[in-house]
Design a protein around this nucleic acid. Sequence first.
RNA 1: GCCGCAUUCGUCUAGAGGCCUAGGACACCGCCCUCUCAAGGCGGAGAUCACCGGUUCGAAUCCGGUAUGCGGUACCA
Length: 488
Amino acid sequence: MAPSPTGPLHIGTARTSLYNALFARHVGGTYVLRIEDTDLARSTADFERDILDNLHWLGITWDEGPQHAGGDAGGEDIGPYAPYRQSLRMDRYAREADRLLASGAAYHCWCTTDELDAVRREQEARKQAPRYNGRCLTLTDADRAQFEAEGRRPAVRFRVPAERIRFDDLIRGEVEFDNGLLGDFVIVRADGVPLYHFVVVIDDEQMEISHVIRGEDHLSNTPKHIALIRALGYREPVFGHIPLILNPDRSKMSKRKSQTAISDYREQGYLPEAMVNFLAFLGWSPGTKEEIFSLDELAARFEIGEVHKAGAVFDRDRLDYLNGVYIRGLTDDELTARLRPLLPAALADHVLAGLVPLVKERMVRLTDAVELSDFLSEPDEVVASWWSVDDLLPKGRDATEVAAALGAARAALAADDGWAAERLETVGREAAEAHGWKAGDFFKPIRVAVTGKAISPPLFGSMVLLGRERSLARMDGALERLRTGAAA
RNA sequence: GCCGCAUUCGUCUAGAGGCCUAGGACACCGCCCUCUCAAGGCGGAGAUCACCGGUUCGAAUCCGGUAUGCGGUACCA
C-alpha cells in the first residue's frame, strides 16, 4: 500500500489499504506500507500523520513500513528495506536513472513546459493524440551544449518501446494495451526529482513486492510500469486493480462532491469497526446473507478474485445503519468509555453510565449522545429557553388544561420519595389515569419541562439522572409559564 | 480525440445455462409494539438482469456488436 501524503486519509485510500490488509492476512503474506512523498511541494508531515493515525484507528496494521509519523525527523521504520519513505530513497532512484540513461533506454529532454504545451495544443487542434514528439531524441551534441549554455536543466525521459503489453489482473483477468500509443514520459524532473511511475517500480523491486493491489485509476498506468520493469530487468509483480468508490453521480469519489476524509467520519462519531465493515462490502461480498463482519472475520473470508469490477457508490444511509448496529452491539461499559471524551466533563461518570442504556438504541453516531444528554449538563434556565408554552401542549389541549395536568403530575411525583424510574412511571401512569388523560398526552409537558425537548430519552430514566430536585424545579418553572401564559 | 475498464431494484449486492414468475440488505411506504424518538416484529412497493443480435431444447449467466458511464491520456500520485 502506497499512500501519498498530499491530503488526509481518503475513503478510497482507506478501502484500498483494507483490501491489501485483508489479502495479505488471508494468504499469510507480508503487508508493506510505503509513503509516496516524491511530490515535495504537496506532501506534508501533517498529512502523513493523518494517514498513519487513521489507518491505525481503523485497525489496519502493516508488517513493514513507518509505524509512526515523523517524516525524516525519525519515525522509525520497521522492516528490512527501510526507509519506507520515498523522500529518503532518492539516491536509489538516481542510480537507476543513470543505468537507464547509460543503456539508452532513457534520454535527456531539454524541452520547457511552454514548448511542451505548445506542441500539445497543436496536436489537439489537429485532433491527434497529445504525446511527446520525441524532439530531444535527435539532438546533436552542439544542441545540448547550447541548452546547457542557456542554463537549461534536462529532465529524463523514458524511451517507451512500441510493443503490446499484456498482463493478468487479479480482478479483471487479461488486459492488453498498446504502448506504441504512448509518448516517451518523464521519469526524472529537470530539478532532479524522480516521478511516480519510475520510483514505484524501483521500490516495488527493491522491497520485493509480489502483489500490487491498487485503485482502478492505475489500470492504464500499469503498461508504463511494466515497460519500465522490463527495461530495468526487474521481476514483474502481480497486479490487481480494485474498483473505484463513487460519488452519487457515479464519478470518482471526490472532496468536492462527498466527504472523503476518514478523520471527518471519525470526528462525527462513526466507529472504526463499522467503517471497516462498510468499506469491505463496497466492492466485495462473501456471498452469504450475513453482513456483519469483524476485521478478523473479513480477513478469514476475503478472496481478492471475488472483488467486483464495477465501481460502487458510497451510500451514507447504509453506513449510518451499520454504525447503529455496531453501537448497539457495544456493551454498556464500552459505549460509556467511547462517549466519555465527547461529553462535557461536568457530566458525572455515574450519570453517563446511567445514560448509556437509555440512549444506546437511539444513536446513529457517537456524537448523537451530545444532543441526547445536554439537558443533564445545561443549567435550568438554558433548558427552559429551548421551549415555548406551545411546545408543552398535547394536541387539542390548551394551557389551562395542561397546567392542571402538569400540576397533578408534579404533585404525584413529588409525593414519591424513592425517585426510581420504575416507581416514577407507575406513579405517573396512575396520575394520568386519575386525571383521565392518555399517558402519552399526560407525559408530554413533563418531558418538555424536564428535558427541554419534545423528543428525549425515556422520560422517567431521564428524570432519575437529572435528580429529584432539578426535575421538580423544571416542572415548577413550566407551571409558572403555563399559568402566566394562560392568564395572558 | 485516443486507449482502457465497466453495466442485476434509487443504493450496496446474491447470482458462475434450467433451483430466477431474479434472493438479501439499506433507503422508502404501511401495520404492530410504544411515554416522545428510536430500536424491534410483520408486510408492501421497487429490476422488461443497458440495448440489439447470435449460440442453445433452455441465457441475468456463453459469444458478437451498439449505447451509456467511468478512468487514464502531466516535469501529480
